[in-house]
Design a protein around this nucleic acid. Structure first.
Lengths: 346, 346
DNA sequence: TTGTATGCGTTATCAT
DNA sequence: ATGATAACGCATACAA
């Protein structure tokens, strides 16, 4: 294998006997302003020379790179893989490269990725992770996002964020409210909630929905019934054990996402408690695995895939003066893990 | 927010009263050839101006971009998320940007990503997905990889590929052999195997290990006991149903990865078959969920995280003349899903 | 140690 | 429709 010099557009142009400009127009320009004959010569030369375009040079010349950066909290979490799938599907064939940025739930990393994507002059930044209630962090995010937008970048947010911009908004509050109503309707009164990170807007909204359901039923909501998790499976397991360790005896456990619910299921099994006979359990999001565990999880369907698609579609539309918001409904899915309050228990 | 002109290094240099070169050395050059005083002035100016480097311009000037591309078959598959986690951990703090490319198990997309990464002048390409036994595809991959390497890129392969290069090689054959030995040792003779895509080297090697175990025990291996899946959970479920639909009555089912084993578990439950009482089930890879399902899965531990780390470490070492190969052992993990052959069954 | 000048590969603005 | 040429923002070889 010869240590071939890198082939550039100039080489292709020379070989085809045309100018650099023409070669550029054929290889990349979307214009049709080249005669079929020359076009063919250029394409042929490129193939013979095994020309591979230099995306960096293109990005420099165009002042924008064909990259869409998606910031997620955890790439291993099905919640995000599903959204990603949607984003990908909607971006198919646009020539845009999907750059997945995994923050591992570290706000600091989120900031780093924001500047990194700016540095790469990404065309769009999609923040798929939840917004924060932390003021300092929001200011930091806002500063970076403003700079990015001023530089010509597009921004799309998934979930409620403290930043003005186009957004896809799943109805976390409404979904949680409907879910909790269902739980209460099954006769449960001793309810424990495994929450997400307290500073996330998603946690906030879902918790709020739960509270509303209590109010709807004329019941008082005891904040002490909430025990925080971090939306990971492990935290769901740990929280459940902590629940019993501190003496709670819930007849129903509401996990604010499915991953934690799956963890809770493991914990309950370890404790010899049957679901839903001894205790009911519900989740949130309706990730694929929710239907596969035993018993299948009653949860709130959030159309993750769809959300990703809508986000990408918003991203492709040019920025407008006002901010577009795409609201997405969430509805309860009844499966096996929720039962009537056991009469054998107090 | 003013529609600020993009700030460049020239602006920073001017503001700091130094030359472009000096500013460049301070902001990006790894050299320490700048006096503390000037350095401080530059850093200050950059901060005041909210300077954000242009990664594309840097990449163009250096003829290489700080991007590590990792090609996976399915980003939602824990097998790959775990490897990714390892890659990320080992790449931490190197200033390299991780670019995850999801082929969705489509060989064509693999090729596209190869040229895309070449176009971006990525520093390294890590192919995390299995190699292929398809000759035409291997030639296509080889051509692209050669071009990339000739252009100065690094390549690291995970698993057995038909391409000469640094590689991380999990012992699929040995692991499968040990696993199947265990199954046979439990008295099972009517064994069904849910295989992966036939054209993947991983499938090939694991199947080979199974055959060896039969030979070790002086038993003949019936190729008809294999039913193909595609390594997805769904395919495991479908394959299991297909198994029974065609009249097989295995006392043990061996899925060539855990995802399919989980799918098989669902199918068995749907059929009212208890594991391991009615039928035993084992998987491969030991992804996190393997320990969480009921019953917990007996499987082969493949240190995914470690593999990712080693791959990244190889990537960071400069290319050598010979090809480095890092062999990684795989060992059987006994859990609940494998039992002795039921005596109640024929 | 610091500055000057050139090139990286492409796109885009002009002419022609 | 095609060609010449000036940016694009940065790194670096070389000069001072």
């Amino acid at each position: 294998m010869r240590d071939a010099e890198t082939v550039t557009l100039v080489d292709v142009a020379r070989r085809a006997g045309v100018s650099l400009a023409t070669a550029s127009r054929v290889m990349n320009g979307s214009d049709r302003k080249v005669s079929p004959e020359l076009r063919e010569r250029v394409v042929g030369a490129a193939r013979e020379l095994r020309y591979v375009r230099n995306a960096n040079a293109q990005a420099l010349a165009k002042a924008r790179s064909a990259i869409v950066g998606v910031i997620v909290h955890d790439i291993g979490d099905p919640y995000f893989s599903e959204i990603l799938r949607g984003v990908e599907a909607a971006g198919e064939g646009t020539g845009q490269l999907l750059l997945v940025c995994d923050t591992h739930r570290d706000p600091e990393r989120e900031l780093e990725y924001l500047t990194l994507l700016h540095a790469h002059r990404a065309s769009t930044i999609v923040i798929a992770g939840s917004g924060h209630e932390d003021r300092a962090h929001n200011v930091a995010v806002g500063t970076r996002l403003d700079a990015f937008v001023n530089g010509g970048g597009r921004v799309v947010l998934i979930g409620r964020h403290h930043y003005g911009g186009d957004a896809v908004l799943p109805d976390n509050r409404g979904g949680a409210r409907a879910l909790m109503r269902e739980v209460l309707a099954h006769g449960h009164r001793a309810v424990a909630i495994i929450g997400g990170p307290p500073h996330l807007t998603t946690t906030h909204d879902r918790l709020d929905g739960c509270r509303l359901a209590f109010a709807d039923a004329g019941l008082t909501f005891d904040p002490a019934c909430v025990i925080d998790g971090d939306f990971s499976r492990e935290s769901g397991e740990a929280a459940t054990h902590a629940l019993y360790a501190r003496g709670d005896e819930p007849t129903a456990i509401v996990a604010l996402n499915d991953e934690m619910a799956v963890g809770a299921l493991t914990a309950l099994r370890e404790r010899g408690l049957r679901v839903p006979d001894d205790v009911s359990l519900v989740g949130f999001d309706d990730i694929p695995v929710a239907a596969d565990v035993t018993p299948a999880l009653t949860t709130v369907n959030v159309p993750l895939n769809h959300i990703g698609e809508v986000a990408m579609r918003l991203a492709r539309e040019p920025a407008s003066d006002g901010f577009r918001a795409a609201h997405v409904a969430a509805h309860v899915v009844i499966r096996e893990s929720l039962g009537k309050r056991s009469l054998l228990k107090p």
